[in-house]
């Protein structure tokens, strides 16, 4: 009897701290990924090739030393790509897409959604555990490559590092939330991956390869309204060329996007689950 009561008490304590279970999930994913840290280095090759091409490309595009293109020096332009690519490579956004689509199509979702956690938060927590290992490794690679092959970054403000880190974390989370939203379409359509491609390509072409300033002036306000601004451009711009005003602007936009994205995600998930109950998977 006594033991039984203990159990109930401890359960109540648990429910008063609902975030604890996500912390446990995070920690176990982190431990697991630390074991396979060596596998992360395998992606270094692709990262290296991408950056190498961009070093060559911008090396060709900039004709005279000190020239500015869209307000960026050659070094800043290359560092910008290195930072955005670091965010893409350092966070396995495809993990979210793959796992969610797999769970829904494989029917695993039926077990996962009855667990005492919110499925989408569970996925986001696991995703965070993934990039917590990858991103620092890519950050080191990028720092080394940049210093050796491009030269030091003059606009970098070490003191503002915490602010940059917050923007990076928010950017990665927003990206995952949007990718999760797309994957949740698997409740209705058989294969959501083509939509993932399109989203990824939009991020890549408009956000990763170039800073927003390089696009025609008329397009720029429009681009600043898209998630690209908060996912890639914002964090990378702050690392390459920090200013407090810019930082506040990016943070505000990120908050807005995170709230909207979260709302959308929960809404789609609820609808999807309802549909699953009606049709029985």
């Amino acid at each position: 009897m006594g033991r039984c009561r203990d159990k109930i008490v401890s359960m109540n304590v648990g429910s008063r701290r609902p975030w604890r279970k996500y912390a446990v999930i995070y920690r176990s994913v982190l431990m697991e990924n630390l074991q396979y840290a060596a596998n992360v280095t395998m992606g270094f090759f692709s990262y290296f090739i991408f950056i190498y091409i961009f070093i060559k490309l911008w090396g060709y595009m900039y004709r005279t030393p000190g020239e500015l293109i869209a307000g960026y020096t050659k070094e800043q332009m290359i560092w910008y790509v290195m930072m955005t690519e670091m965010l893409i490579f350092g966070s396995d956004g495809a993990f979210v897409a793959r796992t969610v689509a797999g769970d829904i199509r494989g029917g695993n979702i039926a077990y996962l959604m009855n667990k005492p956690y919110h499925y989408t938060l569970y996925i986001l927590t696991r995703y965070t555990g993934e990039w917590s290992v990858r991103l620092p490794m890519y950050a080191v690679l990028a720092a080394v490559m940049g210093t050796v092959m491009v030269g030091p970054l003059s606009g970098f403000r070490p003191k503002a590092f915490p602010a940059m880190a917050v923007c990076v974390v928010l950017g990665l989370t927003i990206n995952a939330v949007f990718k999760l939203c797309i994957s949740l379409f698997s409740f209705w359509i058989e294969d959501a991956t083509p939509f993932q491609w399109l989203y990824d390509k939009m991020i890549l072409v408009v956000g990763v390869l170039f800073p927003v300033e390089i696009f025609p002036r008329a397009l720029q306000p429009l681009l600043k309204m898209t998630p690209i601004y908060t996912v890639c451009y914002g964090p990378a711009k702050l690392i390459v060329d920090f200013s407090p005003e810019k930082c506040l602007e990016v943070l505000a936009a990120q908050m807005l996007y995170l709230a909207a994205g979260f709302g959308l995600m929960v809404l789609i998930y609820r609808k999807g689950v309802k549909k699953l109950y009606v049709n029985g998977g």
Binding site: M61, P194, W197, V205
Partner: peptide
Amino acid sequence: TNICFMVLNNASFLVQWFILFRIR
């Protein structure tokens, strides 16, 4: 959809080249 989206996917890189050819 797989076929169509791959065409779109490839076409999206045109944006990159339009931008680069605006510069040089």
